[in-house]
Simulated assay, not measured.
Amino acid sequence: MAIVRGHLNSSEALPVTPDQVTAEWCSDVLGCVVKDLKVIKTIHGTASKIILELIYADTTGQEFTLPDRVCVKGGFDTNILAMFPGLTTLYRREAEFYYYVAPLITVVRLPRAWYCGSDIANGQGIVVMDDLGSMGCTFGNPLEPWPVARVRAGVEQLAALHAETWAPKTTAGEEKNCFPWLAGGSTFPAMVLTLLEPEPWGRRFAEGERPPSVPDDMQDRERMRAAFQKLWAGSDPRYHCLVHGDAHLANTYITAEGEPGFLDWQGLAVGSAFDDVPYFIVGALTVADRREHEVGLVEHYLSTLAALGGPRFARGEVWDEYRKHAMHGFMWALTDPRMQPNDVVFAMVERYTAAMVDHGTLALLEA
């Protein structure tokens, strides 16, 4: 996957509001004169996505056929940035993923990125990529669990990512740092610890906002904080690779041919492969389907990982690691009510807390 243009840590400020994404700016980052553009829609969420239709002056001599529609993704919602200023780190991380990693992972299904940028002035990160919606793709919805066959295909995509980035070792057996720009580590722990503070915890667990499926023993804020900290402190380097970090259904798409892929690489980090595997499997299936097919899906992940050049593990070797990392999904029970609608939060929390109970996750972490 080739990147046409990109500039990280630029001294020139990138756009921070939708009106700053102009034809002139698009011309600059795409390297071809855009004489006009039309904003199809703007979608605000954790990150903002601006869908543009572009009209070019002349594409003669261009190496690639430039897209008629693009998605410009970054931090364009001043209100959400005022509430959560640390989100700029996530926007930069996604730009870094498409700049550094996407050209290297040949098996992972990704939209084409046309420009990746970040700046020093605002901490902004922007990716200009294909508009998948105009290419016949649909997007995953947490309220619509997937059939087992599609989850199996999604597991194969995670195995491809992990196999192609599994942490290599030096001749002395020490883990190499092949991704120095990820030296800051995962953004996930800091975000979770913030959500575990009394005020945000109080908003989520207030009457009418508390997810109804959270068992009584998971409503102890200090206990859940300690469990997360134990999970992070015990990360086993044998399983380290690049992880997506937030591999749930809302961060997926399905091609016109029915093949799944992952989007929203803002949580990218070096970490345990099992940050991704149970988080995806548990969140993508109904509780009943997960209970029936989970073991087979984990075994399929492991066999695909080995077939694509990653290490070979038996399920028995990794099963406790899988059970521990079911904890990852409890993040949904902490989600600020302003970030996700309650029907989505409640559906996801039901799946993750059921898995934590089934796997004895808390007891395993506290042992």
Rank of each mutant, 00 (worst) to 15 (best):
M1G: 13
G6Y: 10
H7P: 00
L8E: 03
S11W: 04
A13H: 06
T17M: 03
P18W: 01
D19W: 06
E24V: 13
V33T: 13
K35N: 15
I40V: 14
I40S: 02
T42H: 07
G45D: 07
A47V: 11
I51F: 14
L54Y: 10
A57S: 14
D58Y: 02
T60C: 07
F64K: 04
F64S: 09
D68E: 14
V70G: 02
K73W: 04
D77A: 04
F84C: 06
R93K: 15
E94M: 10
E96T: 02
Y99C: 04
Y100V: 00
P103S: 10
L104E: 15
V107A: 15
G117R: 03
Q124H: 12
M129Q: 12
D130G: 07
D131P: 00
G140Q: 06
N141M: 04
A149C: 02
A153K: 15
G154C: 05
V155N: 10
L158Q: 09
A159S: 12
A160G: 13
A160M: 07
A163H: 04
W166H: 13
A167L: 09
T170E: 11
G173D: 12
P180H: 13
L182F: 08
T187S: 13
A190I: 00
V192E: 00
E197T: 06
E199Q: 15
E209M: 02
D217C: 08
Q219Y: 02
R223F: 06
F228N: 05
D236W: 11
D236H: 11
P237N: 12
Y239K: 00
H240P: 04
G245K: 06
L249D: 08
A250T: 11
N251C: 11
T255H: 00
E257T: 15
E257S: 15
E259I: 06
P260G: 05
G261S: 04
G261H: 09
F262Q: 08
D264A: 05
Q266R: 10
V270W: 01
S272I: 07
D275R: 14
D275M: 14
V287H: 03
V287L: 02
V287I: 14
R290M: 08
R290N: 08
E292R: 15
H293F: 11
V295F: 03
L305H: 09
L308G: 00
A314V: 02
G316A: 12
W319A: 13
W319D: 12
M327E: 07
M327T: 06
M331F: 11
W332P: 00
A333N: 05
T335I: 10
D336T: 05
P337G: 08
Q340F: 14
A347C: 13
M348E: 13
M348V: 09
V349G: 02
E350F: 01
Y352N: 03
Y352L: 09
T353C: 12
H359I: 01
T361Q: 05
